[in-house]
Simulated scan of single mutants.
Amino acid sequence: MVEIFNERNRQFYDYWKQLPRAEGSLLPYRSSFLPEEIPDLLPNLLLFEVISKDFMKIRLQGTTIDEQYGSDMAGANYLDFVEPKRREVAASAFLMMAETPCGIVARLDQLLTTGRYVTVEAIGFPLLNDRGDNPIIIYSSNELRRSNRFTFEDEYQLHYIYVLDREIIDIGAGAPEFHDLPDDDH
């Protein structure tokens, strides 16, 4: 059983699990995800389209996420916000979710544009794209507590995000092993 600490993330997980699946698939179509059914969760949702291993397009970003990062990043490449030495690992997580398929829950320390550090829990799952071949990944990201971190000066840093832990969620296709370190570091 996956450990989810934030109640909103638990509600998101329960909602995703009950979505009708495409025939013969472990995944629901994007069109079966109806935002009006979970209005209280929308401010903390992110929707990504996996265009290629180098381009994870931010399709939708909730208002709480806008406030945390100081802008609406919709349309941008998520990987542009990741430190260069971490981009391959970050992209691998998205690709693994789409290809296996599986979910991920991660706890992260984040530096917000307000200068405040927080610890968040983010949980994501793949969806089938009704409009094309590019997979869709949907995340719910909610604050757990204030972080005690005061500096992000080590090799595991993302630009604004420090990955504390990441757990793979088996949705029926297995839970592949995932290393949060670049290949040459483990």
Rank of each mutant, 00 (worst) to 15 (best):
S92C: 06
E36D: 11
E3F: 01
F125A: 01
A122N: 08
L181K: 15
N77F: 12
T119C: 13
V118L: 08
E143S: 12
L108I: 02
P39V: 01
A22D: 15
R149V: 08
D72L: 02
S147Y: 11
L46M: 13
Y13S: 05
Y139N: 07
H179W: 08
T100V: 09
R30E: 02
D72T: 06
D66H: 15
R149S: 10
R30H: 03
R10T: 05
D154F: 03
R86I: 02
D130H: 02
R87W: 06
E88N: 10
F48E: 07
A90S: 12
E37P: 02
Y156H: 08
Y78N: 13
G62F: 02
E167H: 12
Y78E: 13
D66G: 11
L111S: 00
H186D: 14
C102L: 07
T63F: 15
T114E: 10
R21S: 01
G24N: 13
P84N: 12
G62M: 00
F81R: 12
G103F: 00
L111M: 06
P101I: 00
T119K: 03
L34K: 11
V82H: 02
E155S: 11
P84H: 09
Q11S: 12
P39I: 00
Y162S: 04
R145S: 13
A93K: 04
W16K: 07
D130T: 10
D72Q: 07
E37L: 13
L112V: 01
K53N: 12
R86H: 03
T113L: 13
V82E: 07
L144F: 06
K53M: 13
N77R: 14
I161W: 04
R149T: 07
Q11P: 06
S52L: 08
I137G: 00
P20Y: 12
N142Y: 11
I38A: 10
F55P: 10
S147D: 10
L112T: 02
A106T: 15
R10E: 07
K85H: 15
Y139R: 09
P20I: 05
T63D: 15
N134G: 05
N44F: 01
R166A: 14
L79Q: 05
I4M: 10
L60T: 07
S141D: 15
R166I: 15
E167C: 11
T114A: 05
I161P: 01
L158C: 13
Y13L: 09
P126E: 04
L45N: 07
R145Y: 04
E88F: 08
E83T: 14
P84Y: 11
Y156W: 05
A173I: 11
Y160E: 06
D170F: 04
L181A: 15
A76M: 09
G115Q: 01
D54E: 15
R116S: 01
G174W: 01
R107P: 03
I161H: 04
F81N: 11
A90H: 01
S71Q: 13
I4G: 06
